[in-house]
Computed example of a mutant assay.
Amino acid sequence: MKIDLSGKLALVTGSAAGIGLAIAKGLAGTGATVIVNSRREGSVREAEAAVREAVPGAQVQGFVGDLANAAGCDALVKAYPQVDILVNNLGIFAQEDFFAISDSEWLRFFETNVMSGVRLSRAYAGAMVKAGWGRIVFISSESGLNIPADMIQYGMTKTAQLSVARGLAKRLAGTGVTVNSVLPGPTLSEGVEAMLKDEVARTGKPVEEVAAAFVQQHRASSIIRRAASVEEVANMVVYACSQQASATTGAALRVDGGVVDTIA
């Protein structure tokens, strides 16, 4: 299968590192022009350089702005009024006990993880419909189905993304615009590496080995018995954005290594 997205403009939010950056590289590799995003100028410039290094000749642009608020989303849409592909990847996570999570923290998670995607989908879907083609992908998580007891605020947002994506897919039925969710499981991104750094320092073991032990302890239902790579997640996202995925919409596409113990 050869995925060719030449001539398409793809926006990947929160794409300075981790899964988002891997998605940006993957889409650039298909010929799409990619917009990378972060709140920090330096991070955006570094992401642009990383995409160009991974894909020589890549067409990549950058937008500096905080998409966790309406003003940031409005500024982005003003700079780029139309895109063909929208990957709502921006997200935050944190381990915190339910009884310690403040109202403001609940709202911060919802604004960042859910409303950023809602606002941008609302802004961009109309032009996609007029063009008769478009792709919207929400980066959810297996935690949206398998809510972690130590990250309930995060799990809540990932469940909400599934609802938004499924409902929006129905709203756009028959238009040529598909809307899907991708559900990574434990993934060895920079954020997870930072979470495991103390254990890596304590044991002296490679981060991949520490991550595998974490998965086996905290996600015992994992079938692959390790953390996925960011590239493995990006592969699924690139497919969902492709011409070939035209009959896939309203779906929750799992890249969870089998963590969610269900056959459906």
Rank of each mutant, 00 (worst) to 15 (best):
R219T: 01
V255D: 00
G134V: 10
M151R: 10
L172T: 04
A71R: 14
R52Q: 14
D198L: 10
P148N: 13
T159N: 03
Y80V: 15
A201K: 08
V83D: 03
K197I: 06
G62Y: 07
M195F: 15
L9I: 13
R39S: 12
A131S: 11
K205L: 14
G144V: 09
L162R: 14
I3T: 12
A125D: 08
A264L: 13
D150G: 06
A75M: 08
V164L: 08
I92Q: 10
G117D: 12
V34H: 10
I136A: 04
A79E: 15
L183P: 00
F138R: 06
A54F: 07
G57K: 02
F98E: 09
G7R: 10
L168P: 07
K8R: 15
A245T: 01
E232H: 01
V114D: 01
N235K: 12
S102T: 15
A240S: 07
G72V: 05
I3V: 13
T159R: 06
G191I: 00
G91S: 05
A264E: 11
S141T: 07
S141G: 06
V129M: 05
I92L: 15
A220T: 08
P206F: 10
V255S: 07
D198F: 09
A47F: 05
V12T: 04
N113Y: 02
R171W: 11
D256P: 14
A24P: 08
S222V: 03
P81D: 15
S246A: 04
A169E: 08
L162G: 06
F98V: 15
I101P: 12
I139M: 05
G65S: 09
L9D: 08
A131K: 12
I139V: 12
L107M: 07
L76E: 08
A22H: 01
S140M: 01
T13Q: 12
L145H: 02
V230W: 00
R39Q: 14
A49H: 10
G26K: 12
M1W: 04
K8G: 12
V83Q: 03
A75P: 13
K8Y: 15
V34A: 08
I152A: 13
V12L: 06
N88E: 05
G144W: 11
E209W: 08
N235S: 14
V12P: 00
A58L: 06
D97H: 14
E142G: 00
K2W: 14
A28K: 10
R226T: 04
N89E: 10
L9M: 10
R226M: 02
G257I: 03
A228V: 02
R122Q: 15
G257R: 00
P81M: 15
S140R: 00
L253Q: 08
G91F: 01
I139Y: 00
P184Q: 00
G31M: 11
G57E: 01
E111M: 05
G62D: 09
M151V: 07
L67C: 04
V260A: 05
S140P: 00
A68P: 06
V255E: 00
